[in-house]
Nucleic acid binder design. Structure first.
Lengths: 341, 341
DNA sequence: CTGAAAGCGCTTACAG
DNA sequence: CTGAAAGCGCTTACAG
């Protein structure tokens, strides 16, 4: 049924080696032979077989996509999905297909990512950050396989990473609130162990210093980036002795939760409390009032991740990490502007 | 560097055939040999190579994921992403990894999905519906490769499909509005060429008949499932001679657009116009008022798609299509209930 | 410019 | 219970 290079060779009356050369655009083939063979390939609809090709060449044209951290948590994560979407477009244009590892398969004890990468002979990997990174990720990034981390600082010989300049994200948020007259600014962070959350926290603290605003320990609260945790963190802030007039949440989802808590307390936004999120999810436009937020440039991150990885695969780069500029999106939740951007 | 079955065999002092048998859980190997070999595999961290394995067996343990229709449009589509996420979990548990085809690669003229499936030797495919289905999809579904369509009616020898019972979705929406006293119910459909949109339209029309409500041609409008088109469709409805008191939109996103149009006109929801969407996106909970909608059971669809495909691959089924029951989620936009479900 | 032959790393009858 | 050998479908020096 399946037609192979052997059949093509026979039909064309040439050797398999010659067909292979034509398939791979070698120069040293006569035009007439090339044409004869190409015609037959055309007619038969022949396509080479991936496994045989890869087995012989060691080049798979496959990029592994790995969600690090908790099993399978984040395939549909609103931020990462956009990054991966953009990554897919760019890397696809370069001739790669994407292999999504299912975390369930090798789960006898450890998910052995390195082994699986070798098994499939992927040319490179993109690793998406998650909570609670496994040791098998370290193994992978220290290996010969080119890896790019998204929001995940990979430092191996053949790896690199890319993320938003999170320090600046906080700076922009705090600056915006400061310019609107706020001096009592609280912060809702991610999990204490989250690198991203911590960079944003440092950015927040640093910005307060910049503007000479004293820092209050009880105004730094922690969540887990999801809505419910923002709700609880905000409740905590509302119960404090002194209530802040503005809140910067390290994720939009937590901001949504915070909005709910503020409402339930009978306070209004932005009159009583201004709030600003981080990420620029779609839902920001739909909440009431529309959420002012710091946008991460998801498309750009994905595109750059693809380019970085390509360079890494081809051994063509010394650049190993990139920071992407965040952008402040002003909507109604801080009171300056109630319309769309 | 890379260790192969040959090395393992030599180290263990047995043949490659024996190692292979042990690797594949054959019965007829002595316990002592098995142990000896397993120990060495353990120590060396040996893993078989995928391409060699597949080349020899014809079984790849890879499932192709194809977004049919317009190039690359919907990887981050809010409905399908949830379906695929659930599919990934289930199929992953069955030992498969996922190969996402990038639409860019083979784009010399046609994206030849069938050829690519054979190239990678995928064991099966899941096809996600989109607009404007290509002929290469037909080729695939008529082939020897097992395929499951999501919202896409595949009828080939080795294919099947799964979707929400969309007729019932409309019935539930109309019934809900009817019970709230509405008799002037308009419908915002998807593109006229969309199967899903049309089934929902028929369901809408049929339900009106059920309740003896006369159907008005000008109250059936068309969008493209996205927000902007819902906005425009609603504007059209608002300009009509007679304005409906309730609207059923074939997607949540169009419902969001409709809400915007209603607001701009100075009307309020649900007092002046009740609105009900379809899908149950996350954002439904955040719009004001929270959107009543017909939920598609995305997790269930994904899970069933995985099971159907597995059965198809193993040649174990006569069932070729499944309808999943939709569920009405009552929120505030029709006035009965203003809280969360 | 073309082809014979060995090799990529595994599996599978088959013989013993 | 074990192994020799052929095969999966391609590529790549190498020789001519």
């Amino acid at each position: 049924m399946k037609i192979t290079i052997k059949e093509i060779a026979e039909m064309a009356g040439v050797s398999r080696a010659t067909v292979s050369k034509i398939l791979n655009d070698y120069e040293d083939v006569s035009e007439s032979t090339r044409k004869k063979v190409m015609d037959i390939i055309e007619q038969t609809g022949y396509r080479p077989t991936y496994t045989a090709h890869t087995l012989a060449t060691k080049k798979s044209n496959l990029i592994g996509v790995i969600y690090a951290g908790k099993i399978n948590a984040s395939f549909n994560h609103p931020f990462f999905i956009e990054v991966v979407n953009s990554f897919k477009k760019t890397i696809g244009g370069l001739g790669y297909d994407l292999l999504f590892f299912s975390n369930e398969k090798f789960t006898k004890g450890e998910e052995d990512y390195l082994a699986r990468c070798r098994y499939y002979q992927v040319d490179g990997c993109i690793l998406i950050n998650g909570d609670d990174i496994q040791s098998s990720i370290l193994e992978l990034e220290q290996s010969e396989i080119p890896c790019i981390g998204v929001d995940l600082q990979l430092t191996g010989e053949n790896s690199g990473y890319i993320m938003t300049d999170n320090h600046k994200a906080s700076a922009k948020a705090v600056e915006h609130l400061y310019l609107l007259g706020h001096r009592d600014i609280a912060y809702i962070s991610g999990t204490p162990s989250s690198t991203i959350g911590n960079i944003r926290k440092e950015g927040y603290i640093h910005s307060l210093q910049t503007y000479g605003i004293p820092q209050r320990e009880e105004w730094i609260t922690y969540g887990d980036f999801y809505e419910e945790s923002g709700y609880r963190a905000m409740q905590q802030l509302l119960q404090g002795e002194r209530v802040p007039t503005a809140v910067f949440a390290a994720s939009d989802q937590m901001a949504f939760g915070a909005i709910r808590a503020i409402r339930e307390k009978g306070l209004s936004i932005p009159q009583d409390i201004a709030i600003i999120g981080c990420d620029d999810l779609d839902a920001c436009r739909y909440v009431d009032p529309p959420l002012t937020t710091v946008r991460q440039d998801k498309a750009r991150i994905g595109k750059l991740a693809a380019r970085l990885l390509e360079d890494l695969i081809n051994g063509e780069t010394k650049v190993r990490s990139l920071m992407v500029e965040p952008e402040l999106i002003v909507r109604g939740s801080c009171g300056e502007n109630s319309g769309e951007e």
